[in-house]
Design a protein around this nucleic acid. Structure first.
Length: 878
DNA sequence: GAATGTCGTT
DNA sequence: AATGCACGACATTC
């Protein structure tokens, strides 16, 4: 029952004063976005949440989930205790949490495929999309908290409007947005786990955990290589058993760990939503160190500490997390409506009625008292947080009976240990299932609302991570995959790979390859689904039922089995996906540069489109070769095997053949007619025309928008022998064009200069003799002070090299103020009382030039003043 | 849960 | 100025 709000709560421990640094605000925004976005139909609450978070940041304990975003924000200051101010993280950093790894990885990136760029964009898309959804796209500049409030308000109204606009629960927009949120959430989670993983290497943590390790145990954990393969594994297991037993008895679960994030479907559901009181506390390394000493905390922390413990004992251990992002599909369960939603019962009060939640700190906590998580340990009520809940007598601070923390019986975090003897990573879950070497035991059932295994990511001590979901998901292809980005949106798989690449080692080790093989084998061995639904979009199998409209089975396809629909139903044959082919119409193939061979019988007929306005049967007997006179037969489809490359009629005697529109279809390069050449230049037609060469504009595709498609013409086809000539002329035309553009730009620049100089001149007159005032002003006022916009504008008008610095400062202070052009009238009006006179050192450099001309701004350049071309040119080139 | 049909968006 | 009617969400019934 985790709501958006849960994942979003902004960093409670790094409150306002740290929000000063410029970058911090962006991160903050993203968090807010996350909250809002996660509650799509509930914008308002989301935002109020964000606000509320800012307010009670101090008093609230925040959940594990809040850490998520935290992990994002204070990613960099992980190993610092010194420069806290390093908060200046921007959202993009989520994608690149670990600079070192990132650089390591850069090499591989460059040699990578070309669509890397595209994927890069996708990352930014997440950012931008979220920003935009709050109407904050461009204005996200470093600003002061005050401005943040304003933006927040703007965002609120913006979202409110958006909500009002679409009442429909799930449309495409909504779907896309969910995908964006899903991705963002994933990145945040990755960053979060990565951070925890680094904590596991912390020396202090490991030192604090030391007492749990006996020499004997350590010995077991590091078996001598003289033992047999089996023996070594056994020793390792023995050691693990020891340390698990020790850990189990000593570690107390006192807080709630991470849960699955759920969407809220109704706005009311987020009203009064509050995080459970017993959510995990630590957000900083020092907290983690403390918990290593006290051995109390959530089960997640337990697993993390256990990982640190193993690492301190010399065991190669991974921190594994089953990420719990907001779903990207619409089928996912939603955060339920709170019972009695209408009533005054706040959620916490509702929780109070549910035994499983500890609600002893509901309202009193609201008292705003800035407490960091660290300090909260000293909070008067803190005792209750450390109250041993799982076993033994609990300290009950009030009449409320102590609540046991009830969570999913399956872990979110666990550990993987490298069984070196067998070169295999094996799961160890010391806290929840208390199992090891049992990967099957860790996947929660599908109906577990608090734990959904979708992405299992394992972080190694060196900070690299791998997606090991397939080791744990029993129906990866049939079920798990459908909940992941891979199967949603386009290029989702690439996105995920790219996201993980951030945490990749630059190279593949042998162990990596072994593991890849293992995972691939697991995937290949996955049993065939037993119900019909799981065959849908299955990467290996396919049912005829689920074939797309344009898909067809190859003739020799043999069934791999059968399924019955439901318990009772006709058996359907199961085919292999690789026996499925796409079939296309003649036209579609033509658009791919292929034509149907002679005497091919269509593999399939698809029903023709039925016109909307025709209620009387379909009388549109269009150009399908329907043999049946009365029955309407659909469009014939053919597979690629039934087609051959299209060869256009060749160019003879310099005559380029063309279609009935006078163009030539060049959908793919192979469609260029023999004897012809394709010149993909805008100027091709003009060039060919100038040369008096026969040419045909190339129809390269269609642009569809709305219902009507329009032809896209790009370039021309000319006789091959004329290609060179045409290209040469095209080059000439381009030069000409460039020259023209340069000229235009020159004129533009000259106009700008002119205007500026005229402004200067006016200024000179107006401000003559008041330099002293001006200077005093400049000297006295600190640059950061907020000034009236008019004044800023006025100052900005006087822009010379000398004042560049000033200007920069102002720009910063100004923030998102969009600087529309500097209308001369603005400042003229603004400084009415002043007399003309000499301008002194303010704009002298500019003033050296003759600023002639009167106030008429419409005058062409050259009229009022002259700037020689060289000067202007230099300016342009700059 | 599964099959079926309709509808809305593109 | 010139062509892509498919697919998922939802409701209903067995």
């Amino acid at each position: 029952m985790l709501v958006a709000a849960d994942i979003a709560p902004s960093s409670p421990e790094r409150p306002l004063k740290k929000r000063k640094p410029p970058g911090a605000r962006r991160a903050e925004l993203v968090q807010g976005d996350n909250a809002g976005a996660s509650a799509p139909t509930t914008s308002r609450d989301g935002k109020e949440d964000a606000r509320a978070r800012q307010r009670d940041m101090k008093s609230q304990k925040h959940g594990q989930q809040s850490m998520v975003t935290n992990g994002n924000v204070d990613n960099h200051d992980d190993d610092d205790d010194s420069h806290d101010d390093d908060d200046t993280l921007e959202f993009e950093d989520v994608a690149l949490p670990d600079p070192t790894i990132q650089t390591m990885e850069r090499d591989t990136d460059e040699e990578e495929d070309d669509d890397d760029d595209e994927e890069q964009i996708q990352f930014e898309d997440v950012d931008l999309a979220l920003m935009n959804s709050f109407g904050l796209g461009e204005s996200a500049e470093p600003e002061e908290p005050k401005v943040l409030e304003l933006d927040l308000a703007a965002a609120q109204s913006n979202q409110r409007r958006q909500i009002a606009e679409r009442r429909k629960p799930i449309n495409k927009e909504e779907k896309d947005r969910r995908i964006v949120v899903h991705k963002t959430h994933l990145l945040c989670l990755l960053a979060h786990v990565s951070r925890r993983n680094r904590w596991c290497n912390d020396k202090t943590v490991q030192k604090n955990l030391r007492p749990l390790l006996s020499g004997k145990t350590i010995k077991y954990l590091n078996p001598s290589t003289e033992l047999t393969q089996f023996g070594r594994t056994n020793s390792l297991k023995q050691g693990l058993e020891d340390v698990m037993a020790k850990f189990k008895t000593r570690y107390k679960i006192t807080e709630r760990g991470m849960r699955r994030a759920l969407w809220a479907e109704k706005e009311e559901h987020l009203k009064n939503y509050q995080l459970p009181e017993d959510l995990e506390t630590p957000s900083e390394r020092s907290d983690f160190q403390e918990m290593a000493k006290s051995l109390e905390g959530s089960r997640d922390i337990g697993a993390q500490l256990f990982c640190a413990l193993l690492r301190s004992a010399g065991v190669e251990a991974r921190l594994v997390c089953s990420l719990q992002p907001l779903a990207c599909t619409s089928g996912a369960p939603a955060m339920g409506k709170p019972p009695k939603a209408r009533g005054k019962l706040s959620l916490e009060e509702q929780y109070a009625r549910i035994p499983k939640y500890d609600s002893s700190f509901e309202s009193p906590v609201a008292a705003p008292s800035p407490l960091s998580a660290r300090r909260r340990l000293g909070h008067p009520n803190a005792a209750a947080f450390s109250a041993p809940i799982t076993t033994g007598p609990t300290i009950s601070t009030s009449s409320l009976t102590p609540k046991k923390i009830r969570e999913s019986p399956f872990p979110i975090y666990w550990v993987e240990v490298l069984d070196e003897a067998h070169q295999k990573w094996q799961p160890v879950d010391p806290v929840v299932t208390e199992s090891f070497w049992r990967p099957q035991k860790l996947e929660p059932p599908a109906n577990d609302r608090e734990n959904c295994m979708t992405y299992v990511v394992a972080f190694e001590a060196d900070g690299t991570a791998r997606d090991v979901t397939r080791r744990y998901a029993k129906a990866y292809n049939a079920k798990t995959r459908k909940m992941r980005v891979e199967s949603v949106g386009e290029r989702g798989d690439r996105w995920w790979r790219k996201a993980l690449r951030t945490y990749s080692r630059g190279h593949e080790t042998d162990m990596d390859q072994i593991e890849s093989n293992e995972l691939n084998n697991l995937e290949a061995r996955e049993p065939m689904p037993r119900n019909v639904a799981d065959f849908k979009d299955h990467p290996v199998y396919a049912l005829e039922r689920h074939l797309r409209r344009n898909e067809v089975l190859i003739p020799g396809a043999s069934a791999a089995g059968t399924v019955g629909a439901g318990s009772t139903g006709p058996l359907e044959k199961i085919y292999r996906r690789r026996d499925v082919r796409v079939a296309r119409t003649r036209e579609k193939w033509y658009r791919m540069g292929r034509v149907i061979r002679e005497n091919q019988v269509p593999v399939k007929f698809v029903p023709k489109r039925v016109k909307r306005d025709d209620l009387f049967g379909d009388d549109d007997d269009n150009d399908n070769m329907g043999e049946h006179g009365s029955d309407v037969v659909g469009n014939p489809l053919y597979t690629i095997e039934q087609t051959e490359l299209y060869i256009a009629p060749r160019v003879v005697d310099g005559r380029v053949p063309r279609n009935r529109f006078g163009n030539l279809d060049i959908y793919v390069p192979s469609m260029v007619p023999p004897g012809g050449a394709y010149v993909a230049e805008e100027y091709g037609a003009r060039a060919a025309f100038l040369l008096r060469i026969d040419y045909a504009p190339a129809l390269t595709g269609f642009h569809f928008k709305g219902r009507q498609g329009t032809a896209v013409l790009h370039g021309v086809v000319v006789p091959a022998e004329n290609e060179e000539a045409v290209r040469a002329v095209v080059a000439g035309l381009k030069d000409e064009e460039a020259e023209f553009a340069r000229e235009m730009r020159t004129r533009e620049v000259l106009r700008a200069w002119k205007r500026m100089l005229m402004n200067l001149r006016v200024r000179q007159r107006i401000w003559a003799g008041v330099e002293d005032d001006e200077e005093k002003e400049e000297g006295a006022g600190d640059g950061d002070e907020v000034e009236a916009p008019q004044r800023k504008r006025r100052r900005r008008v006087v822009t010379t090299d000398d004042e560049d610095e000033d200007e920069d400062e102002e720009d910063e202070a100004e923030g998102g103020d969009d600087d529309d052009d500097t209308e001369g009238g603005g400042f003229v009006r603004e400084a009415p009382g002043r007399n003309g006179g000499d301008v002194e050192s303010g704009g002298q450099q500019a003033m050296e030039m003759d600023v002639g001309g009167g106030g008429d701004s419409d005058e062409e350049e050259g009229g009022g003043f002259m700037i020689d071309d060289d000067y202007a040119g230099g300016f342009i080139v700059e």
